[in-house]
Simulated assay, not measured.
Amino acid sequence: MKILVDADACPVKHIIEKVAKEMNIPVIMIIDTSHILHSDYSEIITVSKAPDAVDIALINRTDKGDIVVTQDYGVATMALGKKAYAIHHSGRVYTDDNIDLLLFERYISKKQRQAGIRTGNIRKRTKDSDENFEQSFRKLCLSHHNE
Rank of each mutant, 00 (worst) to 15 (best):
residue 2 K to F: 15
residue 5 V to Y: 07
residue 9 A to Y: 08
residue 9 A to F: 07
residue 9 A to L: 10
residue 9 A to S: 09
residue 14 H to N: 07
residue 15 I to Y: 04
residue 15 I to M: 09
residue 15 I to W: 05
residue 16 I to C: 07
residue 16 I to E: 10
residue 18 K to C: 02
residue 18 K to D: 13
residue 19 V to W: 15
residue 22 E to A: 10
residue 24 N to C: 11
residue 26 P to C: 03
residue 27 V to G: 11
residue 29 M to P: 09
residue 30 I to L: 00
residue 31 I to Q: 12
residue 32 D to G: 08
residue 33 T to M: 09
residue 35 H to P: 08
residue 35 H to G: 08
residue 37 L to P: 10
residue 38 H to Y: 15
residue 39 S to R: 11
residue 40 D to P: 03
residue 41 Y to F: 14
residue 45 I to S: 03
residue 46 T to W: 04
residue 47 V to H: 12
residue 49 K to A: 14
residue 50 A to Q: 08
residue 50 A to R: 11
residue 51 P to I: 00
residue 52 D to Y: 12
residue 53 A to V: 14
residue 54 V to W: 14
residue 55 D to T: 10
residue 55 D to R: 08
residue 56 I to K: 12
residue 58 L to P: 08
residue 59 I to P: 15
residue 61 R to N: 14
residue 71 Q to I: 00
residue 72 D to P: 13
residue 75 V to Q: 07
residue 77 T to E: 12
residue 78 M to K: 04
residue 79 A to F: 09
residue 80 L to A: 03
residue 81 G to Y: 05
residue 81 G to M: 13
residue 84 A to F: 04
residue 89 H to S: 12
residue 91 G to F: 07
residue 91 G to R: 08
residue 92 R to L: 09
residue 96 D to P: 05
residue 96 D to C: 04
residue 98 N to K: 05
residue 100 D to G: 03
residue 104 F to N: 01
residue 104 F to V: 03
residue 105 E to A: 02
residue 106 R to P: 09
residue 106 R to K: 13
residue 111 K to T: 08
residue 112 Q to L: 15
residue 113 R to C: 03
residue 113 R to F: 02
residue 113 R to S: 13
residue 115 A to R: 10
residue 118 R to G: 13
residue 126 T to C: 10
residue 129 S to L: 03
residue 130 D to Q: 06
residue 131 E to K: 11
residue 133 F to E: 07
residue 133 F to S: 06
residue 133 F to Y: 10
residue 134 E to Q: 15
residue 134 E to A: 09
residue 134 E to R: 11
residue 139 K to D: 06
residue 143 S to Q: 14
residue 145 H to G: 00
residue 147 E to S: 05
residue 147 E to P: 02
